[in-house]
Write a protein that binds this DNA or RNA. Structure first.
Lengths: 227, 227
DNA sequence: TCTGTTGCTGTACGATCGTTCAACAAGGTG
DNA sequence: CACCTTGTTGAACGATCGTACAGCAACAGA
């Protein structure tokens, strides 16, 4: 028998590479089949390996899912940070870059949003997902908060006693509102992609931010309390 | 043997009542166990019936889930409509009632949002869920759009050529943005209930609406806002 | 009290789930 | 070349899944 024709039945890989491949397959299955794609056999078939290999690299299925969620979140947040870092060095340009990155691929992608929703569905009943969420989401929150901090003007110096201490509180609300608007637009676009165009979403967010600037600048109070 | 002590092993119910009970049990299981609660045995145990009964009243599991989604959406949308109808007869008061209903139970409830997220996760890969979504969500969209229509002032008469036709477009975007803000705040509050208070969410939404009013025509502002 | 309808039970079945593990083999090392 | 380490396979296990169905029994009407 010709020994040159023999081909290895499989290829050994370094654990790090194989883990990465399994995580990628997990996310791909999630995109294709939703929550039902999260089975060992579906994932291993997608990765082109046998069923037993997953438990060789991950203690159990939940850990694989958590690792997938970590990578998924990390790459998206990382992409946003890169987009912002590449922007021109002005607060407006940086915010604009952030919004444009938010509403263009890979962020504004039906697959991406579908994956995200499945993870959200797991959130409440999985300690592991909660932990990953806490670890990765704070990078995103810091990014948004930083963009808003440099964008919103300082309150007038005349208000320097109790008013000045109210600003960080209002900044918190501003960040809450902006991320809510972003998340909500993502969701809406996912459920009905024809309802609006990405550019319109950007305009909505910029209108929100502009009204914030007007409030902070003109009167040093955000919609917290009517005085 | 004492015939008076004999107790029926089960109680027959009208199909309509039994179906309702099974649907309620389905939603309760979703609240308690998330996506994993959607099993025939879990639901039938919650409803206090045998495993076979579900397939007696529903052709299959997916139809039961779709029915549960229909009732779940219908009750929430109906509650909102009632809250708006009960409000004082001014656009501002009606919108205020809508927002207050949005950010108080049973809408702003961690269980409610958790159930919603699971349904969202099923959306992409279930024709039935998509159909129910289309049927029930349009009532909600009509409600929001109606509230905005009566709230936003007509554009100034001076602009009567191409400007006048741009108004419905802006109304569409206004509704998109408002529902996005609502959905996003729901989601954020669900993921981290301590991040903000419901009253703050209402204020954020009212700030959004007010800035819309200013854009469309510099006219009536909501009460409680610095001009 | 008897009878018919039918809501309801509960076992059974095949499919699929996550996980285990003994055996295999790829590829570096001597 | 033989050897060893270990990444990898794939059968097997018990549990659980959705569904089917034959029979039981509740309850109304005669």
């Amino acid at each position: 028998m010709p020994r040159a024709a023999r081909k290895p039945r499989f290829e050994r890989q370094l654990p790090e590479q194989r883990r990465r491949g399994l995580i990628d397959a997990t996310i791909e299955c999630l995109k294709r089949y939703g929550h039902e794609g999260l089975s060992i056999r579906t994932i291993s078939a997608q990765a082109g390996v046998s069923v037993g290999l997953i438990n060789h690299h991950f203690p159990n299925k939940d850990e694989l899912i958590a690792a997938a969620y970590r990578q998924f979140n990390g790459e998206l947040v990382g992409g946003m940070q890169v987009a912002v870092a590449r922007a021109a060095n002005s607060p407006q340009a940086r915010m604009r870059a952030f919004l444009e990155a938010s509403f263009s691929p890979p962020n504004l992608d039906a697959d991406t949003l579908a994956v995200w929703v499945v993870f959200w569905g797991l959130y409440r009943h999985s300690r592991m997902i909660q932990r990953v969420q806490r670890e990765t989401y704070q990078g995103y929150v810091r990014l948004v908060r930083g963009l808003l901090t440099e964008l919103l003007p300082r309150p007038p110096r005349s208000a320097h006693t109790s008013r000045s201490r109210s600003t960080p509180v209002e900044l918190r609300l501003a960040a809450v509102g902006l991320t809510a608007l972003l998340d909500g637009l993502w969701l809406e676009w996912c459920l009905e992609p024809g309802a609006f165009r990405p550019a319109e979403a950007i305009n909505l967010c910029e209108a929100w931010i502009e009204s914030l600037c007007q409030r902070v600048g003109a009167a040093p109070a955000l919609p917290g309390m009517p005085e």
